[in-house]
Design a protein around this nucleic acid. Structure first.
Lengths: 325, 325
DNA sequence: TTGTATGCGTTATCAG
DNA sequence: CTGATAACGCATACAA
């Protein structure tokens, strides 16, 4: 390449990086040679000397339950990508589906393929989170932090949001209120349950909490059937997500129970499920795209501002009051 | 690092790569030193000399319509990741959401960050596909190939599948059959429309084809309303996807039209939408996970077998006959 | 079996 | 403004 332009490698490098102090003559010679040879600079060599890759990883755990069922992930991705794209960084999404994946991803992170990472739906004791903390890799969690206090996060207050929406369920006169709880292995799931309990106070009855690992339609259908069996006189339901609520509503319909007259029901997420129920579902809106944007910004800030990790941030949620309760 | 073990760098390298011809003594010394220093080898340096990264890109176009609404993408991802994981390669997902993203991804590919690529939902004249062909990067399309004949693909026969399911719609006595067509800017969308027309023969009426850019619930709802306006006596509908079908069914219900008595309807994908309709939706099942697996395998084959690009492969689909038609 | 020397393709640091 | 030259951290051919 340098030979092709008849110019030293140093000057070629300067031209390619738009550095000042390079003559028009040299610039044109290089550009011509580049076009002729179809030259493209090698990233590995560049990363080796600059110690940066201009790439940020977005790590997603467990595709079965998360990628497939979580309506927020798409919007989080869009927000993250938009911010990184503006900053001319490449977003690379890494999926973890097995122990082996986890080990390989850690290797990938340690290998310097990325300058930072955003972690979705981490769980406590997550090896990835530990590896990142240990590496000192600039990072940010979307959602509540596990026990890696060194890493900042962007989240919502699941507990307060759950409490708020359930409170209004109570305010409309419901007294036998059950919960279809999902994802209790994560803080978000636990917090929604805690908010539910807080809103109910004395009305809370642990027997009316049905647990399921996933936030799925099927979980809602099975859970609702179970709930009706435990107490046929249920008059309110808080579903851990809109998909869960949709499953529950179909079971209620099938049993001839009217919504919201006999049973009021509310969900979480304000996803596409919420607007294709009959009646339309009251739910909590998560600012998914903003979560993604802010997380990306947090990582970029650490990259530029010398690695100082910012604090965690809680974004407000909004209750969307529709017809189901 | 070499100093820490009191051993030459050459031997250290051999130990780390599990090469033969290295004594137990040396191996143990290196392992001890690695553990002590917390050593991890630099990927950039390694890639520079080996000219490989052991990473494969999966490129997704347009997250709004694809990531968010396509029920297949999750399973494709799972299949791809499973195969690459077994081969000890890292899958990195790249999302394209703008012209800028497209340019950056091309840079990323050219920079040698990945050894191969899998392209989802490419469209004809796609700059990414052209760049890959030009680079000679081992690659595979999931879905029909655009006009880049050098790149192999894994797909389904959208035309035949559409034709098959519509034929049975005809066989059940429907005569005024409409189509809610989506994604006509891609081959898959065009092929489904072609199959629809082929199955109908003389019954085909272009006025009964309603077009929409996306495969969404909303597209189905709007499209069905439009279709009923064009001909209130419609008795059959082929929706380009299950989500579209779901939207259409809700409109039919709302207008008091019974399914399948007055109108028979069929979809495409066999996604979660299909089993939460009333009645359950008859549809075409796509082997999404297998598509992902095979695409990954095609890329790996090119990596190992010296770059010879295999031919395209068409996987069979299956009609799932339920109650909606 | 092990050490030594060389090169991978850039950027960065100097003199010029 | 430009051209040498030294890293960057690893793999590898060759010599020992």
């Amino acid at each position: 390449m340098a030979a092709e332009a008849g110019i030293s490698r140093g000057t070629v490098s300067r031209v390619l990086n738009n550095e000042p102090y390079v003559s028009e003559t040299a610039r044109r010679a290089v550009e011509a040679a580049v076009a002729k040879v179809g030259y493209v600079r090698n990233a590995a060599a560049r990363n080796l000397v600059t110690q940066r890759s201009r790439a940020i990883a977005l790590i997603v755990h467990e595709p079965h339950s998360v990628v497939l069922d979580d309506p927020n992930i798409g919007n989080i991705l869009i927000g993250t990508n938009a911010v990184l794209s503006d900053a001319d960084h490449q977003l690379v999404t890494l999926m973890i589906d097995s122990q082996r994946d986890s080990d390989r991803v850690i290797e990938y992170l340690r290998g310097g393929f990325v300058d930072g990472a955003i972690i979705l739906s981490a769980r406590t004791g997550d090896p990835i989170s530990e590896a990142i903390a240990e590496l000192g890799l600039p990072a940010s969690f979307v959602g509540h932090p596990p026990d890696a206090p060194a890493i900042p996060f962007i989240g919502i207050d699941n507990r307060a949001a759950a409490e708020a929406i359930v409170e209004r369920l109570v305010a409309t006169g419901r007294r036998r209120i059950g919960m279809l709880a999902s994802g209790l292995d994560r803080d978000s799931g636990q917090d929604r349950l805690a908010g539910f309990q807080a809103a109910l106070g004395d009305l809370f009855d642990p027997a009316l909490v049905v647990r399921h690992p996933f936030y799925s339609y099927a979980a809602g259908a099975e859970g609702m059937a179970e709930l009706l069996e435990r107490d046929p006189h249920i008059d309110g339901v808080f579903a851990a997500s809109d998909a869960v609520a949709a499953g529950a509503m179909d079971v209620l319909h099938r049993q001839g129970i009217s919504i919201p007259e006999q049973v009021g029901i509310v969900g979480f997420d304000d996803s596409s499920w919420a607007i294709r129920c009959t009646p339309l579902l009251s739910t909590v809106r998560q600012p998914a795209e903003t979560l993604g944007r802010r997380a990306a910004q947090q990582v970029l800030d650490q990259l530029l501002d010398g690695g100082e990790a910012p604090d965690g941030v809680i974004l407000p949620t909004e209750i969307v009051w529709r017809a189901s309760a």
